[in-house]
């Protein structure tokens, strides 16, 4: 794991500055700064209701921002819907995955972006590319790319959803709790895959409740506490306990929000 470019102040691929988001009177995100670096896994941690999913949806263009800047490769960009964000090369793997059980792996990976020869679907080239993508991610657990998604295990489905994001020219992949429903072996596979994405130069955001997962694959940790960023630190500079304190109390030693009482208002 390398933190070199962060230390060197490398440019984030994607950056949010001073983002606020309210739902009616509920102020969910307070002046949030968030950055995604190429080749790095950024873990987004926080208690239930801290605002992680809201932040992901703001990044994905599903929710607009009340205020704050959205920068891509250092330049401010105007994003107003999910299509704009997808056009930047940002893919989101939602917790519920949303795959079509009646379609096979290839059909799911190309859904909505099928390649055609004239009017006719070019199934052969799609199958070829799907297989190459899975192979390049060292996916070894799928019997055939033509098997229906319904026959896959939870980890395999997660793999297909991630591979779907990689198939396209994604620069950034956001994963909302990808291991929440998985067993030990499958979690292992998915974490390996997450690491490989970053090693290929993608910016990866991993939302997780599991500290072991976070410490295993993440390069950076951004902790949210009641909609505020409590800390944004390289993983090597903090311990398990510090992160748990940041999540539950918003501060830990000299890390975290100065005035926790104010944050709870």
């Amino acid at each position: 794991m390398t933190n070199a470019n962060v230390e060197a102040g490398a440019q984030p691929l994607l950056e949010l500055r001073g983002v606020n988001k309210s739902f009616g009177v509920v102020h969910v995100l307070h002046d949030v700064d968030f950055a995604v670096y190429p080749g790095q896994v950024t873990a987004l941690v926080g208690d239930n209701g801290a605002g992680k999913s809201t932040l992901v949806k703001v990044i994905a263009g599903i929710y607009g921002r009340d205020s704050g800047e959205y920068l891509f490769e250092g330049a401010p960009v105007h994003v107003s819907n999910p299509r704009d964000v997808a056009a930047l090369g940002v893919e989101v793997v939602y917790q519920d995955l949303a795959l079509c059980d009646n379609l096979d792996i290839v059909q799911n990976m190309f859904l909505g972006r099928e390649t055609r020869k004239g009017l006719v679907l070019d199934d052969m080239s799609m199958e070829d590319r799907a297989r190459e993508t899975l192979a390049s991610l060292s996916v070894r657990t799928v019997k055939s790319v033509r098997q229906s998604v319904a026959s896959l295990s939870g980890g395999q489905r997660q793999t297909v959803a991630i591979a779907k994001a990689v198939l396209w020219n994604s620069r950034i992949v956001l994963l909302d709790e990808p291991t929440a429903a998985l067993g030990v072996a499958q979690t292992r596979q998915v974490l390996d895959l997450v690491r490989r994405l970053a090693d290929r130069g993608l910016g990866v955001v991993l939302i997780s409740h599991n500290m072991n997962d976070v410490f295993e694959v993440a390069d950076r940790i951004t902790a949210l506490y009641l909609g505020q960023v409590a800390a944004d630190v390289p993983v090597s500079s903090v311990t398990h306990n510090q992160v748990v304190e940041l999540i539950t109390a918003g501060r830990s030693g000299d890390l975290g929000i100065r005035d926790v009482a104010a944050a709870t208002i």
Binding site: A87, R113, R129, T133, A135, L137, V166, W168, N169, S170
Partner: peptide, 13 residues
Amino acid sequence: QSTSPAPYAPGPS
């Protein structure tokens, strides 16, 4: 850009 396939980074052959 999102309609073209990703370039395959050198992975296992």
